[in-house]
C-alpha cells in the first residue's frame, strides 16, 4: 500500500510565489493530474514532490505500508521523468543505466539493462553515446532510468513531449502499469493524458 500526501505545499522564488497551499492525497492505483498554463509551477510542484527541491511551506509525505520513507529511501522509490533532467551525453545508454542503478543501490546486470532498453524501444542502441541520440530517444532513455527501480512513486512531467507515436504508446503502457504498483502524478495539459486522472489540481492565478 502506497500513499502520497502533499500537505500545504508552497514554493516561491525570491518574492514571487509559484504556488501556495497545495493539498493532495493519493493512494495505490490513483493518478493525480496537475494542469495549468506555462509558468504556473507544474514542473516545480513535481520537483518538490520528488524531493529534488525543498518546499518553503508544508511537506511531502511518502508512505509505504503505512510507514513514512526516509529521504535516502525516497531516491530508490521515486521515478521522475522531466524535460529538465539530463542524462550524461558522453556515456552510452547502457553506461547511463548502469550508473543510475549503482548509485541507487540496485543490482545490475548488462542483459537486464539491454532488455529494459529493448522495452523503451532503444533495442540495440545500448553501446551508443547518449550525445548522439535524438531528443525523443533521450526521453525514452529517461523512462528507462525512471522505471529501473520499479518506483512506487512515479512522477511524469509532460509525459509525451518529444515522443513519436511509438513512444506515446509506451507511455500509455507505463501509465496503465503504474496503477498496480503505486501512485502516479502527471503534469500535463494534453487532453489525451489528463483523462487518466483520478484527482485533478489546476495551478495558476488563484481567484
Amino acid at each position: 500500500m502506497v500513499e502520497l500526501h502533499l500537505e500545504n505545499l508552497g514554493k516561491s522564488f525570491g518574492k514571487r510565489a509559484v504556488f501556495r497551499g497545495v493539498w493532495a492525497s493519493l493512494r495505490t492505483g490513483e493518478t493525480l493530474v496537475v494542469t495549468g498554463h506555462n509558468g504556473s509551477g507544474k514542473s516545480t510542484l513535481l520537483s518538490v514532490t520528488a524531493g529534488l527541491v525543498g518546499a518553503d511551506t508544508g511537506r511531502v509525505r511518502c508512505l509505504v505500508d503505512g510507514r513514512e520513507i526516509s529521504a535516502d529511501e525516497r531516491r530508490q522509490r521515486v521515478g521522475l521523468v522531466a524535460p529538465d533532467l539530463i542524462l550524461y551525453p558522453e556515456l552510452t545508454a547502457l553506461e547511463n543505466l548502469e550508473f543510475f542503478a549503482r548509485v541507487r543501490g540496485l543490482p545490475w546486470t548488462a542483459p537486464a539493462g539491454a532488455a529494459l532498453l529493448e522495452q523503451v524501444g532503444l533495442g540495440g542502441r545500448g553501446p551508443d553515446q547518449v550525445g548522439t541520440f535524438s531528443s525523443g530517444m533521450r526521453v525514452r532513455l529517461k523512462y528507462a532510468v525512471a522505471l529501473q527501480p520499479e518506483p512506487r512513486f512515479l512522477l511524469l512531467d509532460e509525459p509525451t513531449a518529444m515522443l513519436d507515436t511509438g513512444g506515446a504508446a509506451i507511455v500509455e503502457q507505463v501509465i496503465a502499469g503504474q496503477r498496480s504498483r503505486g501512485v502516479l502524478v502527471l503534469a500535463t495539459n494534453d487532453p489525451r493524458e489528463t483523462r487518466h486522472g483520478d484527482l485533478f489540481l489546476e495551478l495558476g492565478p488563484q481567484a
Binding site: 530508490q76 522495452q119 527501480p149 520499479e150
Partner: peptide, 21 residues
Amino acid sequence: GTETFSLNSALRPDGVPAAGP
C-alpha cells in the same frame, strides 16, 4: 534478479517484487 529491470514486470498488474528498504 534480472526481472527488476524489465518493463514487463513493471507493467504487470499483480504484485511485483519491489526493492527492499
